[in-house]
């Protein structure tokens, strides 16, 4: 099934939490891109992506984060990734993405890292 879900919520600290679930591939990556663009258009540059229910990612999904990371950091924000399954993490790890993105065990840890200046 090509099923992909994404939604956005805002933490009390003003961090945008973008939740993604299902299968993120070349067919569904545009849904995530649209959602991230909308968050940025609404001046949210502190972004946490919640991977808890994401079952699959291909390079087309990785590409979405690559598109946004530079402009978000230039605007003083960051994109932090959280709660990945081992299967999804292994795709990030294969390409050395942990060197570019900070990956947290949980969403609360990722949100807290913004207030700690991490």
């Amino acid at each position: 099934m090509t099923e992909f879900k994404t939604s956005t919520s805002k933490s009390p600290d003003g961090v945008c939490v973008i939740s993604i679930g299902g299968y993120l591939d070349a067919h569904t990556a545009s849904d995530l891109e649209r959602n991230m663009q909308q968050a940025i258009d609404e001046n949210c540059t502190k972004i946490v992506v919640d991977f808890a229910t994401l079952e699959y990612i291909s390079s087309a999904g990785l590409g979405v984060f690559m598109v946004f990371i530079e402009p978000v950091r230039l605007a003083g924000g960051d994109i932090k990734l959280a709660a990945m399954t081992e299967k999804v993490f292994s795709v990030f790890d294969l390409l050395g993405f942990p060197a570019l993105f900070t990956i947290y065990k949980s969403v609360p840890q990722a949100i807290e890292s913004f207030s700690l200046g991490g």
């Binding site: 291909s58 390079s59 590409g63 979405v64 598109v67 294969l94 060197a99």
Partner: peptide, 22 residues
Amino acid sequence: DMTAYFQHPRRGGLGILLMNKV
């Protein structure tokens, strides 16, 4: 080259690398 890629992130170009890695 992933070092250069991370300095100037962009979309695409990773699929073949993944394919060859796995």
